[in-house]
């Protein structure tokens, strides 16, 4: 009899929790929809994503086709963004380059989020010495200023776009892990987690079925803001010649080669930079909007 009542109670608790979650989600989307910054950011992001798909259709020229007769042409009707030092059409290169920038950004953030979330969940859920070891390791990773950790990794693995993705991803791990760890510790203390445990759920089920869904929102906010930084860092590393190598139309690399022609062809540097900036702006706007929608305290 007692077992039964506690079972009923637990089921109620779990259902109530789910309901709260659903209600929160509904509220979240409605506030997000009202947040102008988030909407603008979202539109920018969708625009860039559609470029990656439409590049072959939209691009007027082959992004790699060298045509030395037409080199360093000022933007015109035939070449909207001009041509580079090898006579390649900058617009076409930029369109194809969107795949690289977004690709590196998303993959590195997924990489960082994947390991960061697991580490954070484990540290937050088990606590004690597990937490101590993980937290100390994260502190060490955060002790490297800015992109220096990424640089160190690239110096070992060698310059390439893949290695940039890994390096930037590694550098995102501690940020995800910290947030997940904090939220996990909060959720872990809720009554209903105890209730589930008494029903015999194992740690794995508790962590992934019951804790993880409850901490998704801070992860998403962090993800959006991290995407902005990841894209900046990756472009920066390619700009330094440590990522994508010529003739790749990666925007950072294009910007880097444009720098040598700043006197004669400033547009070579201007357009790739503009593309990076607007994309990063999109993720920042979206991330800010998400955060405000999730954190009602910030609303006015």
């Amino acid at each position: 009899m007692t077992v039964n009542t506690s079972l009923v109670n637990t089921v109620d608790l779990v259902l109530a929790r789910k309901k709260i979650r659903r209600e929160k989600r509904r509220l979240f989307f409605s506030t997000l929809g009202q947040n102008k910054a988030a909407v603008v950011g979202g539109i920018i992001i969708l625009f860039y994503i559609s470029l990656t798909f439409l590049a072959p259709i939209l691009a007027p020229y082959d992004p790699y086709a060298i045509n030395l007769q037409d080199k360093l042409q000022f933007p015109s009707w035939t070449h909207w963004m001009g041509t580079d030092d090898k006579g390649r059409d900058i617009l076409s290169r930029i369109l194809y380059g969107s795949r690289l920038s977004l690709g590196v950004g998303f993959s590195s953030v997924f990489f960082g989020a994947f390991f960061g979330i697991i580490l954070g969940l484990v540290a937050g859920y088990y606590g004690k010495w597990v937490d101590t070891i993980i937290s100390r390791s994260l502190d060490v990773m955060l002790a490297f200023p800015g992109i220096l950790l990424a640089l160190a990794i690239i110096s070992a693995l060698g310059p390439s776009l893949i290695n940039v993705t890994i390096a930037v991803g590694v550098f995102s791990i501690p940020l995800f892990a910290r947030i997940v760890r904090g939220s996990t510790m909060e959720i872990k203390q809720l009554e209903y987690i105890d209730a589930i445990r008494t029903l015999g759920a194992n740690d794995f089920t508790i962590i992934f079925r019951h804790i993880f869904p409850n901490i998704l929102s801070p992860i998403i906010v962090q993800g959006s803001l991290r995407l902005a930084t990841a894209i900046l860092s990756a472009a920066g590393l390619s700009f330094l010649g440590l990522g994508a190598q010529p003739p790749s139309p990666e925007w950072g690399a294009m910007l880097s080669s444009g720098r040598d022609f700043l006197f004669s062809a400033p547009y070579m540097a201007i357009f790739p930079g503009l593309m990076i900036s607007v994309l990063v702006l999109g993720f920042n706007l979206f991330g800010d909007g998400l955060r405000d929608a999730l954190d009602p305290r910030m609303k006015k």
Binding site: F263, P266, G273, I276, L281, N284
Partner: peptide, 22 residues
């Protein structure tokens, strides 16, 4: 400020260099 956190520093540097130096 939002632009400030979105512009890549290397691009901003190049733009400033182009305007003020070149």
């Amino acid at each position: 400020a939002l632009l400030g956190i979105s512009l890549p520093s290397f691009w901003l540097g190049i733009l400033l260099m182009y305007v003020f130096s070149i």
